[in-house]
Design a protein around this nucleic acid. Structure first.
Lengths: 237, 237
DNA sequence: ATGTTGTAATGTGTTAACAATTAACAAAAT
DNA sequence: ATTTTGTTAATTGTTAACACATTACAACAT
């Protein structure tokens, strides 16, 4: 295994991250990039060979991804790429809202002016991105998720952040597969909601913040519901 | 490793659970029973020998417990029993409330009459237990947690259940270490809250259910806060 | 034709040996 | 005395071989 691939920090930094983490990163990226298809089997030996390593770390990586909900593992049967349906999507978003609401409550009490500014910058980036004509979806998705993750970080609530991060891969799948960030009618409204959340944070207005978040989430859910219905029964992500 | 220890199901049932799961169970139990002290180091080789197995499954088990927040692992440094402080306790309970609120919303929509009855039976058991003079704390804790876990199961929201179960070990630690279920003034009130939650479920009254849950959780948090303050700075669990 | 049983192939779960990292401690230098 | 450096011991991370479970398929019986 190429050591150079993981240790690109400065010399003083000891390689805290283990090989399993690195492999998990690679596999996560591959799944999100659709290089592994939903429900596809992931054979430990194959992956190990393709990455020039052994089965052990690959096994560990698959367990990490299992915890993130990107992979389903069955004892003695192996690991498969998770296939999300409409119900999963609803679960992911309701849970996400519950976590982010709690994060907001905490963030409103704790956030520093500087932290709130960094959120504002992200909203600015969103606006910039939305000006490009063919909007870069992946970029837009990344900024959107970065905003929400920053919220969770600002909360200082470690368990909420950790739970949100466990969910983020699944969120990413859903958002990417359904182009959830930039359908035309949603895009501008979405930016407004984000702006209002920042506003509420600055005003330390808990109710307002949570309301805006709720509207934001509800709109996304409604959008997907509509999409799924248009397509008829085909409700697999 | 003794196979008999894990395969006590009927013959037809294939041993779905793996050795790692079994070891995780044993270690979890040992931690909750205080046989491993907070912050104590857990050496893979030692555990492997004491359980007559090899390091691999023990490693896996430690990772499982890490995900449950019972163990902290640092790369190349090993695994230690998690030590929870007051802030952790607050985090655990606020997150728990967020999860159970969501679970309640779902349960109110989906719960069958039969499921609600099983909750009622648990409340009955609580009442029975509270009649014994030296109250069996572990038993009381188990029934209490069983009630809340059943709620999460009834929700049919798989991710909420899974998140709650990840948290349950930590909840157990907190509740057991602080005798959180049966301080005299809390006990009867606690039973009442549980009864009211069941009532609200039966009436399909979401607001009421969530309010009762909130009061229940807030009271527990207040109780621990009081305890910790009485003891002065000693805020480690 | 259909269902059942036995066998081979594939792939996971476990073990044990090996490599790399960290921590502890003693010796040397400032 | 304090800090630095080298060396050793303890423990984790990784590898590779082995044991076991599951699946697929062919031969056989019904």
């Amino acid at each position: 295994m190429l050591k150079s691939a993981e240790g690109n920090e400065l010399l003083t930094a000891p390689s805290q991250r283990t090989l399993s983490d690195y492999i998990a990163d690679q596999l996560r990226q591959a799944i999100l990039a659709d290089q592994f298809k939903p429900n596809q089997r992931m054979v430990e030996q194959e992956i190990a060979e393709s990455m020039q390593t052994s089965r052990g770390p690959v096994r560990d990586a698959l367990k990490i991804l299992e915890n993130e909900g990107l992979v389903v593992r069955q004892p003695h049967r192996g690991a498969f790429v998770a296939e999300l349906n409409l119900e999963d999507f609803i679960e992911i978003y309701t849970l996400r809202e519950a976590l982010e609401s709690l994060a907001l409550r905490y963030a409103i009490k704790r956030a520093s002016a500087k932290q709130i500014e960094s959120l504002e910058e992200l909203v600015h980036t969103m606006i910039e991105i939305s000006k490009h004509d063919p909007i870069d979806q992946v970029e837009a998705t990344d900024v959107d998720l970065k905003f929400h993750q920053t919220l969770c970080e600002m909360s200082g609530h470690r368990r909420v952040l950790s739970a949100w991060e466990s969910l983020s891969g699944q969120i990413r799948i859903v958002v990417l597969r359904h182009r959830l960030v930039h359908p035309d009618d949603l895009r501008e409204r979405s930016i407004t909601w984000h702006e209002r959340i920042v506003e509420a944070l600055r005003e330390r207005n808990t109710e307002k913040a949570i309301d805006e978040l709720h509207v934001h989430m509800a709109a996304s859910m409604e959008w997907v519901n509509k999409l799924v219905k248009e397509r008829g029964g085909e409700n697999a992500f």
